[in-house]
Simulated scan of single mutants.
Amino acid sequence: MSRLGGLTSPRTSAVLMVLLGMSSIQVGASLAKRLFPVVGAQGTTALRLFFASLILLAVWRPWRKRLTRAEVRPILIYGAALGVMNLSFYLALERIPLGIAVAIEFTGPLAVALLSTRKAVDFIWALLAVAGVVMILPLTGTAAALDWVGVGWALVAGLCWALYILFGQKAGAAVHGGTATTLGMLTAALLVVPFGVAKAGTALLDVSLLPFVLGIAVLSSALPYSLEMVALKQIPTRTFGILMSLEPALGALAGLLFLGERLSLVQGLAIGFIVLASAGSALSSKQSPVTSEGVA
Rank of each mutant, 00 (worst) to 15 (best):
G272Q: 00
A174T: 07
L7R: 00
V207C: 01
L205Q: 06
E247V: 07
G251R: 09
E228Y: 14
S23K: 08
L56A: 13
G201A: 06
V121I: 10
S288M: 04
L4A: 08
V15R: 09
F36D: 10
S285I: 11
V130Q: 02
W125T: 05
T12N: 11
G280Y: 01
L183P: 08
S24W: 03
L214F: 15
G158E: 09
E94P: 13
L146I: 07
G196H: 08
A180V: 11
S245F: 03
S220Q: 12
F273K: 02
P10Y: 02
R64G: 13
S208G: 12
A270Y: 05
A126G: 13
S281I: 09
T140G: 12
L35T: 07
A162L: 01
P62C: 14
G168Y: 05
R238N: 15
S288F: 05
P211E: 03
L137C: 00
I242W: 03
G99I: 05
F51G: 14
G40R: 04
S30F: 04
S221L: 00
L259C: 10
T291D: 00
G178L: 09
V130L: 14
F51P: 10
S285G: 15
S281H: 02
W161R: 01
S288G: 12
Y225S: 10
G168I: 04
N86V: 10
S88Q: 07
A270I: 08
L19F: 12
L98D: 04
S284P: 08
L47D: 00
A279I: 04
L257K: 07
A58F: 14
A126F: 14
I104Q: 04
A174D: 08
L253T: 09
Y225L: 09
T8N: 11
L250F: 13
T45W: 06
L49R: 12
D147W: 03
S245I: 05
S264V: 13
A143W: 00
G196M: 10
F195M: 15
A154L: 07
V134W: 10
K199H: 13
V193H: 01
A203V: 05
W63N: 09
P74E: 05
L91V: 03
V207A: 05
G6R: 05
V112I: 15
L91C: 02
R95W: 05
Q26C: 13
L49S: 13
T45Q: 08
G201V: 10
S23T: 14
L263E: 06
T140A: 09
R95G: 00
A282V: 03
R69M: 13
F89K: 08
P289Y: 09
L16N: 03
V39I: 15
H176I: 13
T8A: 07
G294L: 07
A157I: 07
T12H: 07
V266E: 06
